[in-house]
Amino acid sequence: MTSLPSPSAKKLGLVIDLDTCVGCQACATSCKEWNTQGYSAPLNDVNAYGSNPSGTWLNRIHGYEVEEAGQAQRRIVNFPRSCLHCEEPACVTVCPTGASYKRAEDGIVLVNPETCIGCKLCSWACPYGAREYDQNDGVMKKCTLCVDRIYNDNLEPDDRLPACVKACPTGARHFGDLGDPDSAVSQLVAERGGYDLLPEMGYKPVNKYLPPRPRRDGATSRPEALPKPDGSAFDRLFAWADRLLSTGKTPARAADIDNSGKLEG
């Protein structure tokens, strides 16, 4: 089991747009909510109403400050982090029991809660912190890519998406087959320069991240300003307003207006 299957043609995964994520936690709580009653349920909480509450979550949202060339201040980037369903998942190969496995069909990495002994070694092998040990259940939990949603015949076809993707209010999360170069997610990755996390580790993550776009502010935009004609701004405005009436059209350019602002009455 922990031997990896031959690489699947279908590589289901997520594409996460860091330019659009506002860090609202919708993906995190929707994930927790679905998965606490779905595959490998529940996702337990410890000290739920006391000090230091903690629990098992399959998706967590970080906030980073990032320095930018030409910008005086660092920007904040919200960063959701969950299992990347790697093509070379060491978390699977280190598993002594075969509870961790990568599906031959679509590449989803799962833990079988019936056979996991809770040795935690897989979480040590994962560089991405994707696996969380559930101390109440004594087994390891991780993102299932909502395997019990995406193929679920009891759901409407439009709902057959991972809970996080369906929830995401800004549309920053995309789900699809990254093994198919023509899929919408693959196209998105190609267009936006989607990238791997820690590529040098060789785990070959399937999930991709789309980088934040450059800002469009004073540091990056061309400086521009409205024309500042000489003379009395009021008089020019008056002339402009006067002309409005005669042409019935707006807006007119200031430069070619004769300044003849005389008050009547």
């Binding site: 500042k228 020019r236 405005l237 707006t250 807006p251 200031a254």
Partner: peptide, 15 residues
Amino acid sequence: HEIVSAQRIDGDYLL
């Protein structure tokens, strides 16, 4: 101040 100074406002709409 800037847009009024430059008369770059929607006169028709205002009227």
